[in-house]
Amino acid sequence: MSNETDVTVILPPPAIPLRILSDPAPEPVPRPQGYNGSDLTQKKKKERRMELQGLEVGDPRSTINLLKLGLHNVAQSLPPILRKYGWMIPIILVIWTGLGTFSAYKMMAAAPALAPLWMFLDKIILVLVFLTASYNNFIGKAIYATVVLRVIVPLVRRVRREGFRKVKTNFTSLIPDLQKNWAEVGARSLGILILFAGLAAMISNFLTRNNAIDKIAVSLAIAFAIMKALGDGPRSIPFMTGRVVMNDLFVLLRKPSPVRNHHIYVALSGLTLGFLSSILLAVLRKPLGENIGYILGAIAVVAGLVLIVVMKSKQADA
C-alpha cells in the first residue's frame, strides 16, 4: 500500500496589464476649426498688456489712431445723415439768419404803434434763439447740431420705442454710480471733480462767448450728452477717449498709466457739473463780467490740481 500525499499547489494570479486597472484615457477635447493655441496665448498677453496700460479690448492704441477712427466713422456716417436730414440744412440756416437779425427795438422805431406786439414777439424770439443756438458762434452751432442729431434725437426715439421708465434708469443711476466710483478713486476724487469742472466752465465761456442766458443751450446739451455717456458705461466714446488720451500722456512721461474707468467717471462727472454751471455763470455775468467763466474756471483748475497733489502726498506719507 503506497502512501500518497495530496499536495495542493497555489498558482500565482495571472498578470493583469496596468492599463486595464487604470482609468480609461480621456478622449481628446475637440478643437474648433482653425484653433491655434499660440494665437490664444498671444491674445491673452495682449489683453493683459492693454489692461496694464489702462486700455480695454477694442480701444485704439494711440490718440492718432483714435482720430483716424473718428474721421473714418464721420466719413461713413456723414453721407447717410446728409441724405436723411440734408433738406433741413437750408431751413436751419434761414432760421439762424432770421433769429440772429431780428431786433424788436428796430421794429418799434419803425412802427411805434405796434410796440406791444414787438415786445411780445421779442420774448418768443429769445426762446427760439435759446432752443436753436442762433446767437452762438460757428463752433457752438456745430457742436449743438451734432449733439441734437446724434444724442437727443436717438434718445427721443428710444423713449418712444421702449418707454420713459426704462430709459430713465440710465440717468437715475448716475448718483449711486458716482458714489461707487468716488470711493474707488479715493481721496483725490474731489480734486479731479473740481479740476474738470473748471475746465468745462472755461470751455462753456468760449462756446457762449459771454455766458449770456440765450447762448447756454450748447453747454446744457453737452452736459446732457456726457450724462448719457456715463449711463452707457465704459464702452461709450468719452470713456474710450479718456483712456486712450491719458495712456498717451503717461507714455510721454515714460510711466504706466494709473488712470482707470473709475477715474474717468469722476472726471466726466466734473465736466457735467462744469457745463451745468453755465446757468450760474449766466446769472453772475452781469455783476462780474462776461469772462466770469474763464476766471472761475481757472481758479477751479488750480484748486483741483493743488488738492490732487496734496492728497497724493498724504497717501505717500501714510
Results as ranks from 00 to 15, higher is better:
S278H: 02
S269E: 01
F239D: 01
M246D: 02
V259R: 11
N247T: 10
V259T: 11
S278Q: 12
I237H: 05
K255P: 01
P256G: 02
L271C: 08
R254L: 13
N247M: 12
G242K: 12
L276S: 03
Y265F: 15
R235Y: 07
R243C: 06
P256N: 12
P234F: 11
L252A: 13
M240D: 00
P234Y: 09
H262M: 04
R260E: 09
R235S: 15
D248C: 10
R254I: 10
P256C: 03
N261F: 02
V245G: 08
P258R: 05
M240G: 02
P238C: 07
P238T: 01
P258K: 07
V245S: 09
R254H: 13
V245Q: 10
G274V: 02
N247V: 06
I237R: 05
R243H: 08
P234N: 08
H263C: 08
R243P: 03
K255I: 07
V244M: 08
D248Q: 07
Y265G: 06
K255W: 01
N261E: 09
L252D: 03
L271A: 02
H263Y: 15
Y265W: 13
F275P: 03
S236M: 12
F250C: 03
S257Y: 02
L273E: 00
G233R: 07
I237F: 15
R235H: 13
V244P: 05
I279F: 14
L249R: 12
G242P: 04
P258H: 04
L253F: 14
L252N: 01
H263D: 07
R254T: 08
S277V: 08
A267E: 01
M240W: 00
S278F: 00
T241Q: 11
G233W: 08
N247D: 10
L273Y: 01
L271H: 00
N261Q: 11
F239G: 04
N247Y: 11
R235Q: 13
S257W: 04
T272D: 03
I264Y: 06
L249E: 04
L252P: 02
S257G: 03
I264L: 15
I237P: 02
V266I: 14
M240F: 02
I264V: 13
G233D: 07
I279D: 04
S236F: 11
H263G: 04
V266L: 11
I264T: 13
G270A: 13
H262L: 07
L249G: 12
L276V: 10
T272Q: 07
H262P: 01
G270H: 03
I264A: 11
D248S: 10
L249S: 12
L273M: 10
